[in-house]
Amino acid sequence: MNIFRLTGDLSHLAAIIILLLKIWKSRSCAGISGKSQVLFALVFTTRYLDLLTSFISLYNTTMKVIYIGCSYATVYLIYMKLKATYDGNHDTFRVEFLIVPVGGLAFLVNHDFSPLEILWTFSIYLESVAILPQLFMISKTGEAETITTHYLFFLGLYRALYLINWIWRFYFEGFFDMIAIVAGVVQTILYCDFFYLYVTKVLKGKKLSLPA
């Protein structure tokens, strides 16, 4: 555990909790892509099946349980409790175009051809693109609430910090996981355009809106 990994995890946790609290407090999930949230729930479910097979640390187990619990709570709020506020008309990204290729790739490129390992690989690949329905929704409506942009910022920051963590681990532990690294780089790149808008607009007190 190094400082980049820890702050990365905490940044991820912050993102998840910001989103959940935003929806809960405002009693509205307007502007939030339910599809992205379902994909993240799927990511956590398929990745953390090892909760049942191996114990790494109390920290590891606790965080996994929190991530899974919060992601299902978010999906529940969007599709059940606050369904009336869900903006389904703008959430039109075709997720099968992500799931099918990602599933195929997980079968072809993995560390070990075993069920748990393929599901882990699937979750890594899927996570790298799971935010696309949300970004697509923002590009479609041309704007995002400021609190939603904070959520996206922390989610992107988490992946960027993990990249530094992997560089650290490579130098100091000789550890590298090519699948996680390549997917992590892809994931971070997807946030670059958003980061630019976040820094140039949101941090200067303006609302994030895209030119028509």
Binding site: N60, K64, M178
Partner: peptide
């Protein structure tokens, strides 16, 4: 040395 399973990251 490359990856070790189980995966220790989140």
């Amino acid at each position: 040395h490359a990856l070790t399973m189980p995966h220790d990251e989140l």
